[in-house]
Amino acid sequence: MTSKLNDNGVIEGSRMILPEHRDAYVAHMHELNRREKPVLDEQEWQLIGQALMESYQERVSVTLTVFDPFDDTVMRGVVASIDRRRKEIKFVRGEEDYSFISFENIVCASI
């Protein structure tokens, strides 16, 4: 008769994981990939502001890199409005496709 114990002393037939434990493990592994927001110097902020103003005034397309803790998003479109009080821009990517982007989430901007 063979033993039901393997090298680590666990019965082979009792290996089971609860769905809640699996979900918690997956969420934990996802959180390990979280990144910190890069710190931009004054010169980079000036270049971003210059690109945003040029896009707003001349209605030219600009490429924005928006920070996300897991993966940055690159968008191409036109700045429709700049709200300095709320510190955000209205960014139009198509006829009816627009979004509001906070200044602090913009990492890079280029014409």
Rank of each mutant, 00 (worst) to 15 (best):
A24G: 04
P38R: 00
I11E: 11
D71G: 03
R76A: 02
R84W: 09
R15Q: 08
R76C: 01
R59N: 05
W45S: 04
K87D: 04
C108P: 09
V79L: 02
Y25Q: 12
M16A: 06
I101C: 11
E104S: 11
L32I: 07
G49C: 10
V39L: 11
K87L: 12
D83L: 03
V60P: 00
S3F: 12
V74H: 10
I17H: 01
Y25D: 09
S110H: 06
L47S: 12
K90G: 04
D41S: 06
K90F: 00
G49W: 14
A109Y: 09
S110P: 00
V92L: 07
D72C: 07
D23W: 04
S3I: 10
M75P: 00
R35V: 11
Y56A: 11
P38H: 09
Q43H: 08
D41E: 09
E44F: 05
V60Q: 03
M1N: 15
R22W: 14
L5S: 14
Y25L: 15
D97H: 13
Q57D: 07
S14E: 11
M1T: 15
Q50N: 09
M53A: 04
G77M: 00
T2Y: 08
E31G: 01
K4C: 13
S102C: 11
R76G: 04
Q43M: 03
Q57E: 10
Q57H: 03
R22H: 14
D68K: 12
N6H: 06
F70A: 02
R59A: 02
L64E: 04
R84M: 09
